[in-house]
Design a protein around this nucleic acid. Structure first.
Length: 100
DNA sequence: CGCAGTCTAGCAC
DNA sequence: GTGCTAGACTGCG
């Protein structure tokens, strides 16, 4: 559970109104298995335990979500993030790279 | 547009 | 307890 634990920690670090990408998370974990990151989030914290909905694809695109892409989209919009279709609008502005 | 690479979690044996 | 499959991705061909 070390991997997933780290994933959760990073997700929890994401401030409201911000999003991150699987690539960044995986990179932070020192791995390249972006799939494993999404998988860990998909299997474990399907609940609002961690803001898994703040995690998007490499291009800010809303890829899969346990509760459905719609839910993810709605949640992100609620966070104040603008979503166009199934992608984050200006995701570069809301992209959190864990710089601190 | 399609295939391969990488890792974890879950299910099956 | 060990092994195999599937999966919320990404990059390259």
């Amino acid at each position: 559970m070390g991997f997933s634990c780290k994933v959760y920690d990073l997700c929890r670090r994401i401030p409201k109104g911000k999003v991150t990408t699987y690539k960044i998370i995986a990179g932070k974990l020192g791995t390249k298995a972006y799939r494993a990151v999404g998988n860990a989030l998909h299997r474990n914290p399907c609940a609002p335990q961690v803001p898994c909905h703040r995690v998007v694809g490499s291009d800010g695109r809303l890829v899969g979500f346990a509760h459905g892409i719609k839910m993810k989209k709605a949640l992100l919009q609620k966070e104040g993030i603008e979503i166009i279709g199934y992608k984050v609008a200006g995701m570069e502005k809301v992209l959190f790279r864990f710089r601190a």
